[in-house]
Amino acid sequence: MTNAQSQRARSRRWRAARSYLVLTVLAAAYVAPAYYLVIGSFKPAADVLSGLGGFAPQHLNLDNYRSVFDSLASDSTGYFWQFMTNSILISLAVVVVGLVVNSMAAYSFARLSWRGRDKSFLLVVALVIVPFEAVAIPLLFMLNDMRNSLLVQALPFFANAFSVYLFYTFFLGLSKDIEEAARLDGLGSFGTFVRIAVPSAKPVFATVAILTFMTTWGQYLWPSLVVSNPRYRPLPLELSVFSGQMPVDWGEVLAFGTLLILPVLIFFVAFQRFFVQSLASSAVKG
């Protein structure tokens, strides 16, 4: 090996080492809060906020989890598993109905010809920039009679402009040849959508499902306005049982936080393969 080759090899190794260092620091920055959340959930409150000592895995026990379950275990407070079930039902309803409604709307915008289609699509796209907070008040009045139900927590979120946009961009990129062949074989618009477009769109369905589930799971403002009965409260509202009192028991807050993110984590892991596929295909498309 010549001197020049040896220098180039050293330089490559050095560059690789620097890259790994930067990536390691970035990865640590992302992982550290999650680690702190989980490890803190097993520690006494006094040990949680002890500077860098908060990261040390010491004095671990299940007391915080016991406290969380004990605090939410009566008819008057409601039950932890009841809140969890409510959140799962609401989130799944929004995901399932949302996938059906938004994908069909997007297919209509992308593939069907009807008067006012483009203007309607522009209107839908414009809705992406309207924050939920801006429509919360009118919604509160429109749906006030449905207070204290699971439906009122899901209904405003079925139709989602951003989901429509994601589906729309995907359907636009689908080859028209297969769809035309299907039509020649006698399939109508709905049949083509169900048998041709949907099976091809698994990655975007997964992406929309994950994004919708995560957003719905974390809803706080809307349920806090429309739900008072413990029977219908979703899990995130109960966080304030532990964080809303002074002094805050940070161990309990972190235990509740850990329990709160578990279903999201499971959902993400279940669909991540499609999610990554979707991201990769988007990246390729540029």
């Binding site: 008819d75 008057s76 407070t77 409601g78 509160l140 006030n144 207070r147 806090s224 306005l225 429309v226 008072s228 009965n229 413990p230 509202l237 109960e238 304030s240 049982v241 964080s243 809303g244 009192q245």
Partner: peptide
Amino acid sequence: KLTLVPEADYTTTIQSTSADD
């Protein structure tokens, strides 16, 4: 029949509930 609402949301809950409810 007792219903308990988390302290941090309690006043908001009353405010956002109509008098009839």
